[in-house]
């Protein structure tokens, strides 16, 4: 660490070393991000995510090759509009990956965050650095959130490219029947990608909490993804409708409300609020567990 920071006088004293300065955390985060995104596993997950829009695009292209069909309203959201405007592939791809592919990838990365270090025996060495456990946990969470954003953007950018290659572009019709320009459509697509990334924040916190519970990376990943599947199934059971508004995945598909004109904010706000709540509850639970844990490996 370069202790002689120019802006903070006296940071060279041993006292300052015990309370690490923010730049050091940035270094920690940078290292964490490099480790996360250099893993073959992460790259494979991102590759699978990038392939989904390609598959959807080609399928729609083949299906509508002999002239536009009326559609039937089946399949993921917005799929009937793709053949008329490639930008809709972005929305369809996000709607197709959000229920399972995206959170599964996030679950793998989040579940591995602490437990993976623990099972690889490297957690001890991380804690030897003068960062403190809270700081390490925050860094891990920041890295997982960065992965949420990266994964979503990979899907969106891949879909945008495939959509532009295979289908016409131009002005698009919102689901309310009004028309918006292509530039505004792109803006909404970016906003939707950000909302989708933010939708995963709560689940990422849950995964991180699970990750602090066990010393087995695989176990934490499996538990996190298992929780995802369980909640998705419970969200389909009509008898549980009193509980469902509190499931982290309940408002996930509300991002489609951004394509209404005017935008219908109620469910979007509920979704973001719920994600913030999950992040706060499971983030603090992860902190409580991790800072009180005996690290033996």
């Amino acid at each position: 660490m370069s202790r002689a920071e120019p802006e903070t006088a006296g940071s060279g004293t041993p006292e300052a070393a015990r309370t690490p300065n923010p730049l050091w955390s940035l270094g920690l985060l940078r290292g964490e991000l490099l480790i996360t995104f250099r893993r073959w596993r992460t790259l494979a997950l991102l590759g699978v995510l990038a392939a989904v829009p390609v598959l959807v695009g080609i399928a729609v292209k083949i299906e509508t090759g002999d002239g536009p069909s009326g559609g039937g309203g089946e399949g993921p959201a917005f799929i009937s509009q793709i053949s008329n405007n490639g930008l809709f592939l972005v929305f369809t791809a996000l709607a197709a990956t959000l229920p399972f592919f995206l959170p599964m990838a996030v679950g793998v990365v989040a579940g591995d965050a602490i437990a993976g270090e623990s099972s690889a025996g490297t957690l001890r060495y991380l804690l030897v650095a003068p960062a403190g456990r809270t700081r390490l946990l925050l860094t891990k969470y920041a890295a997982v959130m960065a992965f949420c954003l990266a994964a979503t953007l990979v899907v969106a950018v891949s879909a945008l490219a495939v959509g532009a290659l295979l289908f016409p572009l131009g002005d698009l019709t919102t689901i309310s029947g009004t028309r918006i320009g292509y530039a505004e459509g792109l803006g909404r697509a970016l906003l939707i990608a950000l909302v989708v990334a933010a939708s995963l924040v709560g689940f990422a916190a849950l995964g991180l909490f699970v990750s602090t519970l066990t010393g087995s990376g695989i176990g934490a990943m499996a538990t996190t993804v298992g929780l995802l599947i369980t909640v998705q199934i419970l969200d389909q059971i009509p008898q549980l409708d009193a509980l469902q508004p509190y499931f982290f995945s309940h408002y996930w598909l509300s991002f489609a409300d951004l394509m209404r004109e005017p935008v219908y904010w109620d469910d979007l706000v509920r979704n973001l609020g719920l994600q913030a709540l999950y992040a706060a509850v499971f983030g603090s639970a992860a902190w409580a567990r991790f800072t009180a844990k005996d690290i033996t490996a």
């Binding site: 009326g70 559609g71 039937g72 309203g73 959201a77 917005f78 009937s80 509009q81 008329n84 709607a95 019709t173 689901i175 309310s176 029947g177 598909l253 489609a256 409300d257 209404r260 219908y264």
Partner: peptide, 26 residues
Amino acid sequence: SLLEDAAEYSLIHDGKDVWGYDSKSN
């Protein structure tokens, strides 16, 4: 407009024209 999951059904009356638009099936 009837708001549905990721879709909307709009009934628009504008002068002489009445349009119904189902965004789900386009």
